[in-house]
Amino acid sequence: MNRTERIATTMLAGIALAAVVGPWLAPADPLQLGDVIGARLLPPLARDGAGALHLVGTDRFGRDLLVRMLVAARLSLAVGVVGAVGAAALGALAGALAGWRRGITDTLLMGVADVGLALPRLVLLLVCAALWQPGALSTVVVLVATGWMGVARLVRAEVLGIAQRPFAEAARALGAGPQRVLWRHVVPQAMGPVLVATTLGIGNAILLEGGLSFLGLGVQPPSPSWGNMIAGGRDLILVAPWVAIAPGLLLVLTVSCCTVLGDALEARLRGEVSAPAP
């Protein structure tokens, strides 16, 4: 692990820990409205009338932004992780079946995957979000439904290659049934790329959840998510820019860390490539 990767891992762990522990340590309920007039739109590092310090300021209802950002981190991280892992699992299942069974299963599954890939994912998300009731759960479902295709293509290609390898044949020769060979011998070998795709997918899912919530089609207020917090600061952008900027910074930091980790895993998987300049 190089220094960048160590820093990324540490920061990601720190954000997750703060998201779990932070709101417990906070003095006030993040959804509770207190002294709205006295504490509203305080800039970062300001103290309110009661003398409490607000590290990144307060929003239009006088709620502490840092506490709300940490509560939002719970939801945004959970939606991102569950959405990405669910999509990877569904994709691995579809890809393994398509690559193993071949024939009509392959044609059908990959046809569906191609159709899904033909639309930009955000547009597909918007259509689904428009047709179903918005909320955290439907956001996860939609993320899974629109995210499995890439992983399915990856796993199918891997399974096609691995199924021809001698150890798969050896397992068959030892009397293992096709299901056992597939799930115990072939699929585990294909998990490397899936791991990379999932790590990068978590960052992507957090971004997409942010986008949907920003447009009011994802997590609904008053439950805070990074996306709807940024949306809440949208019309205050010239009056109190920190309301929209702060949650976005945390989001960018989180997604960057996921990208760095995904890249690191991929490099590890492939063996480092080093190139001298010509």
């Binding site: 920003f214 600061g233 952008i237 820019p241 929209a244 900027i245 976005g248 960018v252 997604v255 960057s256």
Partner: peptide, 13 residues
């Protein structure tokens, strides 16, 4: 890793 909508808001600010 930056959401476009946030970058747009930040640029406006």
């Amino acid at each position: 890793a930056t959401p476009t909508f946030w970058l747009a808001l930040a640029t406006i600010a």
